[in-house]
């Protein structure tokens, strides 16, 4: 496998019983690149993420990370190599204060290996990362139990957990869903910063406006099949996309505002 791409998803398929969730999807992700994956509900986006991160084993196809076959590896091995993800259905540790939610990530073998055992105070590092994702440091917010935090904060907590892992690839599974407009607007620069730091990002998103602001490379799924790939303009003008995803041309124009 060529090694110029960081993450290669090659012809991956998965079916649950009679339902084909993902059907022969192929794409490549380079270092520092952002790929947006869009598609209607049930088009197999989250399943694709679960396959890449090892939670689901694909029926067919292979996944390569830095030239190494990672198909069928357990999730913790894949994360250990440098692929971090957020969950669409948020999975915080509800009983713990927000900043303690990052401790398992900071305690992971990957991070301990990368920092060579000299992390200092994990709580302090956790607090820095939380500030990075928009938790007000001097307020009580980072100390509140996760169960008392609003949904938007929990979404960003998921992002913080990814950043704590110092990953090379971050997969964001509908990070913006459930966030308020203000929260989305303040989160976009965080993702742009990660991109500029050279982290490759896969973004699954329904908010096209913000997605197109971050990336110029979009992939469209429908019924588990990749129906288009390219720049936002190319994709939005592809007839299959208009028909399958956006329904009609008028709606498409409204959505992307052109």
């Amino acid at each position: 496998m060529r090694t110029d791409s960081l993450l290669t998803v090659s012809n991956v398929s998965k079916h649950f019983g009679g339902v084909v969730a993902v059907n022969g999807v192929t794409f490549k992700l380079k270092k520092g690149e952002v790929i947006g994956i869009i598609g209607p509900n049930g088009s197999g986006k989250t399943t694709l993420v679960n396959i890449i991160t090892g939670f689901i084993r694909p029926d067919k196809g292979k996944i390569f990370f830095k030239g190494k076959d990672i198909t069928g590896c357990p999730p913790y091995t894949i994360t250990d190599m440098g692929i971090a993800r957020t969950f669409q259905m948020i999975r915080p540790f509800y009983q713990l204060p927000a900043y303690k939610n990052l401790i398992p990530s900071l305690f992971s073998p990957r991070v301990r290996r990368l920092v060579g055992g000299k992390y200092g105070d994990r709580d302090a590092v956790a607090m820095d990362i939380l500030e990075e994702v928009g938790f007000e440091r001097d307020s009580s917010v980072p100390y509140k139990d996760a169960r008392n935090l609003p949904h938007g904060y929990l979404k960003r907590l998921e992002l913080g957990r990814c950043i704590a892992l110092r990953p090379e690839v971050i997969i964001l599974d509908e990070l913006f869903s459930g966030m308020s407009i203000a929260e989305v607007t303040s989160t976009v620069p965080i993702i742009e910063k990660l991109r500029d730091e050279g982290i490759a990002i896969v973004m699954i998103e329904h908010r096209l406006l913000e997605l197109f602001q971050i990336t110029g490379h979009v992939l469209v799924l429908n019924f588990g099949r990749k129906i288009a790939e390219g720049t936002p303009e190319e994709v939005m003008n592809a007839p299959e996309v208009k028909e399958a995803y956006l329904g009609s041309e008028d709606v498409a124009k409204e959505e992307i505002g052109c």
């Binding site: 913790y76 994360t79 009983q95 398992p104």
Partner: peptide, 24 residues
């Protein structure tokens, strides 16, 4: 300790611990 946090995390939410790169 942080170790205790991880093992309690396994009870709470093992998928999140796995996505932290920890072999549960």
């Amino acid at each position: 300790s942080d170790y205790g946090l991880v093992i309690k995390g396994i009870n709470d939410n093992d998928r999140a611990i796995m996505s932290s790169g920890i072999n549960i």
